[in-house]
């Protein structure tokens, strides 16, 4: 029914484990594909990937392109880019999505440049709509609206790629929701041998050190976050005590991470993790747009700050103007008394 290519998702894997963001994109990609009368397809690159990607079908993919070569494990950008560009030229997908991870943000631009395509970084929403280019008097049907924060998070821009497909985006982790997987669903596997040129194999990985993440904020249903207003590293223990009492997870704003009170894995916001817990308690966080972008979809937000003018109060459901040293122990005491 259509001459368009499909909706493609670049699947990021590390040691055969698929990144959460890739599954989130499969869900979003499948939704967009339905709107366009297309299907979603995934492309996974690496070595020895058999049996590692059934979940892609469960979340909605019809096809998985399984691209294998020794040079594709571990990730280096040149062979990845070449293998991907070859497939794109052959299949001409309508849309191509990457996670806005370190890998996605390194690979995406290289591929877009070679394809002479636009690429929009760090999208937080994607929609389908028509676009009228008033300057050039052209109308584009069913284009991908690529919605992203810019200017330090102070504006939200909607961007459209008007040249040839694919319409390429990187998408922030945690912003697209996972739909319920259908574990009975199966799909087609297309095995691809990329025939990489020697020029792509010039970079050597001499050493690789990875520590598993110490925390997964995205899975926490209660988050207690501390900001610069906490004041000292010593005082940050209050935040930990409240989190522990409520059965929640500690997190922080960038200011608290920069101050050295807690490590970057715990950072919520534009340069950290995007979260949407049942309850988010912001302690001594002023509420910069960068921080708010990472937490304002929380179901309930409590803000505690001694400055009644702090912007965090404008996104909070409950506001407490007061000193943390006074308010936090009261919260712990009240909760312990009630449960």
């Amino acid at each position: 029914m259509n001459t368009k290519g499909n909706v493609w998702i670049f699947i990021e894997q590390e040691g055969g484990k698929i990144a959460d963001v890739s599954l989130e994109l499969v869900c979003k990609g499948t939704e967009l594909a339905k709107q366009l009368g297309l299907v979603s397809e995934a492309v996974i690159l690496g070595d020895k990937l058999d049996g590692k990607f059934d979940s892609l079908f469960h979340y909605g993919c019809e096809t998985v392109y399984q691209v294998e070569d020794k040079a594709l494990e571990p990730f280096t950008v040149l062979p990845y880019a070449q293998a991907l560009v070859k497939l794109l030229k052959q299949h001409k997908p309508n849309i191509l999505m990457f996670g806005a991870t370190l890998k996605g943000r390194e690979l995406g631009p290289r591929v877009a440049s070679e394809m002479m395509c636009g690429l929009t970084a760090d999208c937080t929403d994607l929609q389908i709509d028509d676009f009228e280019d008033k300057v050039n008097k052209a109308i584009y049907k069913d284009k991908l609206m690529q919605i992203r924060p810019a200017f330090g998070g102070n504006i939200i821009a909607t961007i459209v790629n008007t040249w040839e497909d694919p319409q390429m985006v990187t998408v922030r982790e945690g912003v697209m929701k996972l739909t319920a997987p259908d574990t009975s669903k199966k799909g087609k596997v297309v095995k691809v041998t990329p025939e990489l040129s020697d020029e792509t194999k010039v970079m050597k990985v001499i050493k690789r050190v990875r520590k598993p993440k110490t925390v997964d904020l995205k899975k926490a249903s209660i988050i207690v976050a501390g900001g610069y207003g906490v004041g000292t590293k010593e005082n940050f223990k209050l935040i930990e005590q409240l989190a522990e009492a409520l059965g929640g997870q500690v997190a922080a704003s960038r200011a608290a991470v920069d101050a050295g009170w807690i490590n970057h894995d715990y950072q919520v916001g534009q340069t950290g993790v995007t979260v949407r817990p049942k309850l988010y308690i912001a302690c001594g966080i002023s509420g910069s747009v960068q921080h708010v972008a990472g937490m304002n979809e929380s179901a309930k937000i409590i803000a505690i700050n001694n400055d009644p003018g702090a912007p965090i109060f404008s996104v909070a459901h409950y506001g407490i103007v007061g000193e943390l040293n006074d308010v936090v122990p009261k919260l712990i005491k009240a909760f312990k008394a009630k449960v």
């Binding site: 636009g118 690529q146 998070g153 504006i155 790629n161 008007t162 404008s314 909070a316 506001g319």
Partner: peptide, 19 residues
Amino acid sequence: PTKVKKIENVVLKADKVVS
């Protein structure tokens, strides 16, 4: 290749906060 369709300023929503 990319065109900006629109730009919106981020205004922190002033919902009713319970004090």
